[in-house]
Deep mutational scan, measured.
Amino acid sequence: MSIQHFRVALIPFFAAFCLPVFAHPETLVKVKDAEDQLGARVGYIELDLNSGKILESFRPEERFPMMSTFKVLLCGAVLSRVDAGQEQLGRRIHYSQNDLVKYSPVTEKHLTDGMTVRELCSAAITMSDNTAANLLLTTIGGPKELTAFLHNMGDHVTRLDRWEPELNEAIPNDERDTTMPAAMATTLRKLLTGELLTLASRQQLIDWMEADKVAGPLLRSALPAGWFIADKSGASERGSRGIIAALGPDGKPSRIVVIYTTGSQATMDERNRQIAEIGASLIKHW
């Protein structure tokens, strides 16, 4: 058993032996400061991975655009179909130039040979490839079927209504393609630790998130040596930015963190910096 498999397999085991986890309101002070700095709403939640207890939250039940963070949920739905014998990670999917949409750094290189379902999930999560996400959405029946999958998990909040890139429109008060921090954190925890997916599929999902290559300026920039993080970021119109993550010290995840912001006029660099500073406060007061 690899170190990674050891880590995921023991998450339920550690729940019975973990020390009490204490919240630190200092992080919420930073979240509120980020709102002031960005001139935008910020949603935040910090969840204990083992118990599911909410440690801190700010606007946990307000809607925010999901942006590309939905791609983790999408690959969770794909893995659920794999577990049920309805899909194979090794199945190759062929597509054409007409299928390519904006920001497809991986799929645009494989027009001649296509990509496997496994490769598409990797591209969608680690590189946020939009065509990969659309191709995967097609395999499960489209955005409405992803919403149905989430409903069956008990998440009646999170919804996907459109495809890439239209889902990134982020119109104020538009509930399409949105979630709430509390709903996203709970759903992510179920995917990573619950019985919905097999152990192998849970491991695969967290491996893809751990290999994320496009979230460096966010929480990863504040991470001390030896800490673990598996994450997925997102960005969209109207100053929207977000990240969902499982992270913790000693090389294993122990908390879920979800951060969303929307409605800012700030630059992408400034949005990144504010999220990184929230992460730094979280780690300092861990």
Results as ranks from 00 to 15, higher is better:
Phe6Ile: 15
Ser68Thr: 00
Asp36Gly: 15
Trp227Glu: 00
Pro253Met: 14
Tyr103Cys: 05
Tyr95Asn: 00
Arg81Leu: 08
His24Pro: 13
His156Asp: 13
Ala245Cys: 08
Ile93Gly: 00
Leu135Glu: 04
Gly194Ile: 05
Ala124Thr: 11
Gly226Pro: 04
Gln88Gly: 09
Arg162Gly: 03
Thr69Tyr: 02
Phe13Ile: 14
Ser80Ile: 09
Leu218Tyr: 02
Phe228Leu: 05
Ala84Asp: 12
Ser80Met: 11
Asp174Arg: 01
Val214Ala: 08
Val106Phe: 06
Ile243Gly: 00
Met115Gly: 00
Pro20Tyr: 05
Leu188Ala: 05
Ser96Asp: 13
Ser254Phe: 07
Thr126Gln: 11
Met268Cys: 07
Cys121Gly: 05
Arg189Ser: 10
Glu166Asp: 13
Gly226Arg: 07
Ala276Arg: 12
Pro172Asp: 14
Ile275Asn: 00
Glu119Ala: 08
His5Ala: 15
His110Gln: 07
His5Arg: 12
Asn152Lys: 14
Arg59Gln: 04
Asn98Ile: 12
Met66Arg: 01
Pro249Gly: 03
Asp207Gly: 14
Gln203Arg: 13
Ser201Ile: 09
Ala200Asp: 15
Val72Ile: 07
Lys252Ile: 12
Pro217Lys: 11
Tyr44Ala: 01
Lys232Arg: 05
Arg202Ile: 05
Asp99Tyr: 09
Gly52Cys: 02
Thr158Val: 00
Gly251Asp: 08
Glu145Gly: 14
Tyr103Phe: 10
Pro253Ser: 06
Trp286Leu: 03
Glu87Val: 07
Cys75Gly: 08
Ala211Gly: 12
Ile244Asp: 01
Gly216Ala: 10
Ser236Glu: 07
Arg176Cys: 07
Ala9Ser: 15
Glu166Gly: 08
Glu175Tyr: 11
Leu136Ser: 00
Pro60Asn: 07
Ala215Gly: 10
Leu89Cys: 04
Leu223Pro: 02
Lys53His: 12
Glu87Ile: 08
Lys252Trp: 08
Leu223His: 02
Ala15Arg: 01
Ala200Gly: 14
Ile3His: 15
Leu73Thr: 06
Asp83Ser: 04
Ala230Cys: 09
Thr112Glu: 14
Leu218Gly: 03
Ser80Gly: 10
Pro12Tyr: 14
Arg220Gly: 02
Ala9Gly: 15
Leu137Gly: 01
Pro249Arg: 06
Ala230Asp: 02
Arg241Val: 00
Ser221Glu: 10
Leu188Val: 10
Ala183Pro: 05
Val42Asp: 00
Leu191Val: 07
Ala16Gln: 13
Ile275Arg: 02
Thr158Gly: 04
Ala200Lys: 14
Asn168Arg: 02
Asn134Leu: 00
Gly226Met: 05
His24Thr: 09
Ser2Arg: 12
His94Tyr: 14
Ile171Phe: 14
Gly226His: 09
Gly114Asp: 15
Ile283Phe: 12
Val106Leu: 10
Lys30Ile: 08
Leu196Arg: 13
Glu237Asn: 07
Gln88Thr: 14
Ile125Tyr: 00
Ile93Met: 14
Lys232Phe: 00
Gln203His: 10
Met67Ile: 03
Arg273Ser: 09
Asn98Ser: 14
Phe13Cys: 14
Ile283Tyr: 09
Lys252Ala: 12
Trp163Glu: 06
Phe228Tyr: 14
Leu89Gln: 04
Asp33Val: 11
Met115Leu: 12
Ser68Cys: 01
Leu188Gly: 02
Ala230Thr: 00
Thr178Lys: 01
Ala211Met: 10
Leu73Pro: 11
Ile3Asp: 10
Lys232His: 03
Arg41Lys: 13
Ala222Glu: 12
Leu219Tyr: 00
Gly90Cys: 10
Lys252Glu: 12
Leu219Ala: 01
His285Arg: 08
Leu89Arg: 03
Lys284Cys: 09
